[in-house]
Design a protein around this nucleic acid. Sequence first.
DNA 1: CGGGACTCCTGAGGGC
DNA 2: TGCCCTCAGGAGTCCC
Length: 289
Amino acid sequence: MPELPEVEVVKRSLESSIQNLFIKRVKINEVNLRYKISHSKLTKLTGLKIKKIERRSKFLLFFFNKPIVMLVHLGMTGKFFFINQKNKKFKTSFYYNLNLEKDIKHDRVIIFFKNKQRLIYNDVRKFGFIKFLQLSNYKENFHLNNLGPEPLGGNFNQNYFKSYINNRSRFVKDILMDQRFVAGLGNIYANEILFSSKIKPTRKVKTLKDNEIKKIIFFTKKILKNSIKFGGSSIKDFSSINGKKGNFQQNFKVYGRKDQICSNSDCNSYIIKLNLSNRASFYCPKCQK
DNA sequence: CGGGACTCCTGAGGGC
DNA sequence: TGCCCTCAGGAGTCCC
């Protein structure tokens, strides 16, 4: 579900809510996520203080006052809920107030803090995961050590892009979604970036002209930043840790718009949907070359 | 190296 | 009400 902007929104709200809190107890309702949760490692969080939260690509990293790192990936439906209430029944009313009562059964892990607040990891499809790494070498973990540059960073630039695609014949959309090339884009934003750049998802990267690469880089940064500003995209069930939905989906220009008229005012074509590498791809046959 | 098919899992929505 | 099918913000593996 969540791509870079959504994970960034979660990271920022976690920072302002659970940073510096002490963990009192951890409850595991389901160990079988994408990878089996280590019960012993998770319960060792008891007594620790959360010192820092970082985002890398679509991963969240939690740092503590001990040399361990908790690595979390939200998969398609992973969510955190922060419950800022000491009343025992508040969890139920929190879900009910947000019309999420049917989601209660997908609470997989609950972290209770000493101040009686709690953080819930909720994940319908269980494609997310929670892993524990050593602080001294966590960057060498295979999830992290093959990642490309952050799309919003300076390393994602014209020179990098050109040298990477060097004569490769892959589809441009596939490469944008390849975390080894650039880390954090997913299906929605890859579609949106290519629409704004006026490039067809099926263009082979080696045919991209300099000015087209420039446009892709420009719109990648612009669209991601804009989405973060809007609180991310909530097409089905993404929400931040207070249950608040994002609003960037209102700004989608192609994603999910099959058979609808192109959003460029001077175009009267209809948006086409096709399957590329098993993922839905949307584009305007007239505007995107 | 690359493409394509398939996998994990659960729920929503459409057609009949 | 139910059944069956397809689809979903991800990403890993296996086979050719």
